[in-house]
């Protein structure tokens, strides 16, 4: 139980500069196991830059990202060797891209897509990999008979669900999502959100989700961070931020949604 209270991820004064331009500036927060953090803000506000820097894809100009690893305790992500970091990224972490084409291998079957991470960590039994892939296909509500089909024959919503299955197969503890519902129509979005919410709850996943859609943020996230021009301008419980926004920009953001 004590481990539940220790942060899984700690970000301290993270700053990313693109030359003179600010990507994101002085961002600090902690994330505990099972917690879902939403990052909202308009296009260009530094959400994706922040996500890339936290998820070890782009080394920040300044600041620290610490992660509670399964074996070695708390480690600075950017002080790890590249081999360790890449191992972490494909086992204990997951990254769900906005465009499923970025996160899937389009020229191999759905089964191979889900099995890739298993094979990457040394699974060498075809039957086990296949049955594992099959069960994950079920969990993301894709019919078993599509196991050997190429992702390019899937609809956009199915591709996104396949990408989620492919990421969760190694039971990661931390999942990064960049606009996971972007580009999907509203009914498909609703189903995907429902599925995500179930998985997050069942698997006790910690999630950092970047979105410009406040509805998505409200549905999924426990806490919310609002960004503008690279800075976090408001941070708090989701309901608190959305129902009682303090910062003028957040007020603008919330009021720009159609109310009944």
């Amino acid at each position: 139980m004590t481990q539940m209270n220790e942060p899984l991820l700690r970000v301290d004064n993270l700053t990313m500069m693109y030359g003179d331009r600010v990507g994101c500036k002085d961002v600090s927060f902690e994330l505990r196991p099972g917690e879902v953090l939403g990052i909202v803000g308009e296009s260009g506000s530094g959400k994706s830059t922040l996500l890339r820097s936290i998820s070890a894809q782009q080394e920040p100009t300044k600041g620290v990202v610490e992660y509670q690893t399964r074996i070695d305790g708390v480690r600075d992500v950017y002080q790890m060797s590249e081999a360790q970091r890449r191992l972490l990224m494909r086992t204990d972490w997951a990254f769900v891209h906005q465009n499923p084409r970025d996160g899937l291998r389009m020229n191999v079957s759905a089964g191979a897509n889900i099995g890739e991470r298993l094979m990457a960590i040394g699974d060498r039994h075809y039957g086990n990999i296949r049955s594992n892939a099959d069960s994950w296909l079920g969990k993301v509500e894709i019919a078993s008979e599509r196991l050997d089909d190429l992702p390019s024959t899937f609809s956009g919503g199915m591709q996104q669900r396949l990408q989620i299955a492919r990421n969760l197969v190694t039971s990661p503890r931390l999942v990064f999502m960049d606009e996971p519902t972007g580009g999907l129509d509203v009914s498909v979005q609703a189903r995907l959100l429902d599925l995500l919410r179930g998985l997050v709850h069942d698997l006790n996943l910690a999630v950092i989700i970047v979105t410009h859609d406040l509805a998505v943020a409200r549905l999924l996230s426990h806490r919310l961070m609002v960004m503008q021009q690279g800075k976090v301008i408001e941070h708090g419980l989701t309901d608190q931020v959305l129902d009682d926004p303090q910062h003028p920009y957040t007020q603008l953001l919330v009021s720009s949604i159609l109310q009944n």
Binding site: V108, S109, G111, E116, R117, M119, R124, R130, L147
Partner: peptide, 15 residues
């Protein structure tokens, strides 16, 4: 990181 090599073999068996 040679997991990818087995993805190719997996795909062979699946097909």
């Amino acid at each position: 990181e040679y997991g990818l090599m087995h993805v190719k073999l997996y795909e062979d068996i699946a097909r």
